[in-house]
């Protein structure tokens, strides 16, 4: 199973070392203290449910705005 599928499909991140994370790229979480996250649906650091976009909270499938990643045969 692709590890990125545990996270909402709309979560994105950028670590301090220049790499974007999320979508078809893994969440690397090299340095939690300097990694920023955003939600594609708001294009801000807050999800559409008004809570922070973050690798922890956006891995919660019960979160109101959580949207599972597409699997290949759905595309």
């Amino acid at each position: 199973m692709d590890s990125s599928r545990r996270y909402c499909r709309y979560l994105r991140g950028k670590n301090a070392y220049g790499t974007t994370e999320g979508g078809d790229k893994p969440f690397l979480n090299f340095d939690p203290a300097t990694t920023t996250y955003w939600c594609l649906r708001t294009m801000g650091p807050v999800g559409p449910d008004s809570q922070p976009a973050h690798i922890a909270a956006c891995g919660n499938e019960k979160r109101n705005c959580f949207t599972a990643a597409k699997v290949k045969n759905e595309e």
């Binding site: 590890s3 545990r6 996270y7 893994p26 969440f27 690397l28 979480n29 090299f30 340095d31 939690p32 449910d49 809570q51 973050h54 690798i55 922890a56 909270a57 891995g59 919660n60 499938e61 019960k62 979160r63 109101n64």
Partner: peptide, 13 residues
């Protein structure tokens, strides 16, 4: 209001 889960990332930090 939302629980944190799935927090280990791929590198494991």
């Amino acid at each position: 209001k939302v629980k944190d889960e799935g927090n280990e990332g791929d590198v494991g930090v």
